[in-house]
């Protein structure tokens, strides 16, 4: 217990805890809309697509500044988004196939470039492979400040445009009919999504980032039938996953932070599937069980109460 409390005393760990929590919050909120718009896999495609962006940014500049690398990741993410959109619109290929094509091509190029950089022997190359699985432990104060600002921007954008995002997620045709610029809103939401992915890569890595976007949203969907509540819950679940995952990782057993955050999110998801009232598996089974018993009872004793009454009298 003292070990856990001690974690919060260490300023370094405190930064990382705070950073991962904010990351979870922002990605949970943005991820809710992606999930409802059936773009769950988009996060996966975007984060994988970011890898070549990171590599190219490094090869061009030769510096490993976080800002440059994230700019590369964001650029690659946007190119991937437009690529997927272009393929879907201008060919008979459906979105799932387009996602698969873009994801694998970008990731393949990224791995080739990564290997190339590592063999080039420029003393500065180590650490790029951290983008594969992330390295939350290397976050410092300034990184967390950037994360905090970006998370605030994500949450604020979703709060301000909540009505508009709800409308284009539920019925884009109707939204267009009423004169909302659906294409612009679409791209804005996708941009928020790319931002969330890019800031998350540093902590969780390209391979696992999609989980932090979608898992909290899917878990939240189990608990509520209202979009506002769902988005807030997804943010909370995301923040919780970031916090708990980091705490476990920092408590000294040397396990990687990103994957632990993802595993925590998965644990929340499992609990939601099992216990959520309404949609959860156990409450559903209980309801079915009691309904069956009530039915059996009402079938078994239709005549009896009347009989018993007569006996009493």
């Amino acid at each position: 217990m003292s070990g856990w409390l001690g974690l919060f005393g260490d300023p370094n760990v405190r930064w990382i805890l705070f950073g991962c929590m904010l990351l979870g919050l922002g990605s949970g909120v943005v991820g809710s809309f992606a999930y409802l718009r059936k773009q769950s896999l988009m996060g996966d495609a975007l984060s994988h697509a970011a890898l070549p962006g990171v590599c190219i940014a490094f090869m061009l500049t030769g510096v490993k500044s976080l800002f440059v690398l994230l700019a590369g990741a964001a650029a690659a993410g946007l190119v991937a988004t437009f690529g997927i959109g272009y393929i879907t619109r201008h060919s008979r290929i459906k979105q799932d196939a387009a996602l698969a094509i873009v994801l694998t091509v970008f990731f393949g190029v990224g791995i080739v470039l990564l290997t190339q950089i590592q063999h080039s022997g420029s003393g500065n190359q180590s650490g790029l492979d951290k983008f594969l699985f992330g390295q939350a432990a290397s976050m410092v104060g300034t990184d967390v400040a950037v994360l905090a600002v970006i998370s605030c921007v994500l949450v604020a954008a979703c709060a301000l445009l909540f009505k508009e995002f709800k409308l284009i997620s539920f019925d884009p045709g109707f939204a267009r009919g009423m004169g909302f610029p659906v294409a612009v809103l679409d791209h804005l939401l996708m941009l928020l999504f790319v931002i969330a992915v890019v800031v998350g890569i540093q902590a969780v890595g390209v391979v696992l980032m999609a989980a932090l976007l979608i898992t909290p949203a899917v878990s939240a969907r189990y608990w509520t039938e209202r979009l506002g509540v769902m988005v807030a819950l997804a943010g909370t679940f995301g923040a919780l996953s970031g916090l708990v995952g980091t705490a476990i990782s920092a408590s000294g057993n040397n396990l990687p932070t990103g994957p632990l955050c993802v595993l925590t999110a998965t644990a929340v998801f499992a609990a939601s599937v099992l216990f959520a009232p309404g949609r959860g598996v156990l409450p559903k089974a209980l309801r079915r069980f009691s309904a069956r018993r009530r039915l059996a009872r009402s079938l078994a004793e239709p005549a009896e109460p009347a009989l018993r009454k007569e006996h009493v009298q």
């Binding site: 009505k163 539920f170 939204a175």
Partner: peptide, 14 residues
């Protein structure tokens, strides 16, 4: 979609 009948009708006012 996680929304109620009332909420959908309100969309007509957006």
């Amino acid at each position: 979609f996680p929304t109620s009948a009332l909420d959908v009708v309100t969309m007509g006012r957006y």
